[in-house]
Design a protein around this nucleic acid. Sequence first.
DNA 1: AGGGTGACCTGTCGGC
DNA 2: TGCCGACAGGTCACCC
Length: 270
Amino acid sequence: MPELPEVEVTRQGLAPAVVGQRIDVLRLGKPLRWPLGVLPDELVGRRVVALRRRGKYILMDLDRGLLLWHLGMSGRLDVGVDLPPVGRHDHVILCLGRLQVRLHDPRRFGALIYAQQESDPVVQKLLGHLGVEPLGDAFTTDDFAHALKARRGPIKPALMAGDIVVGVGNIYASETLFRAGIHPARRAHAISRARMDALHAAIRAVLTRAIAAGGSSLKDFRHADGALGYFQLETRVYEREGLPCFHCQTPIRRVVQAQRSTYYCPKCQR
DNA sequence: AGGGTGACCTGTCGGC
DNA sequence: TGCCGACAGGTCACCC
């Protein structure tokens, strides 16, 4: 579910509540994608120092070590002092004083991992191969064009792979390609430099706008405080198969690429 | 090395 | 109503 905007909105909502707080209890429910890597009891007493984001991971820095959170496809973090009773899909419960943080994840593709430091092999295995942050200064048009030139496959899976640029998942890949007027099956290296630049700009614009809208709440996603995101009201092609393109009225098409649905306008995108 | 595929897990929805 | 397949925001290991 959560792509970069949803993870960033989650981080922003969680940070003011948990930074400076001390972990009193950590309870684990059904197993997630990977084991925690430490006994929960050993984390008791540690203090949350900062919350960062790298791609779709949330890095929770503790006064000793760090916790790496991932929301998978269906995960969300709920935070509050008065949350409803624990449900069957609340697989991690973190108590910080009266405050609770819960990882709610029906499909359990999410993860919570502990490491002593960011340079640990466990962390590097997950983060080491990631591309640049799309909203940072390191995401330049020159580097982006250079990386795309080295890809012979279709642009949409290349965009989602995460080794060129992070955070663009299935919704935002379709949306950014629509806004840049690029057909999702176009070979990456064959896109003109001008259109690569347009895609670069679209990635920044769409992700920035999606964060401002609070992310996309399709099924499970909610902010840490339970609020919904509204970017799904602004999508132009995603899940709009057969509906008229907002620009030219041509019916939006759905195709499958690398086993994921792709939505595009056959007239506006070439 | 890039790119495709299956796997992980649970829930929902549409068709018969 | 019940069953069955398709599909859902991610990403890893594995194959060529």
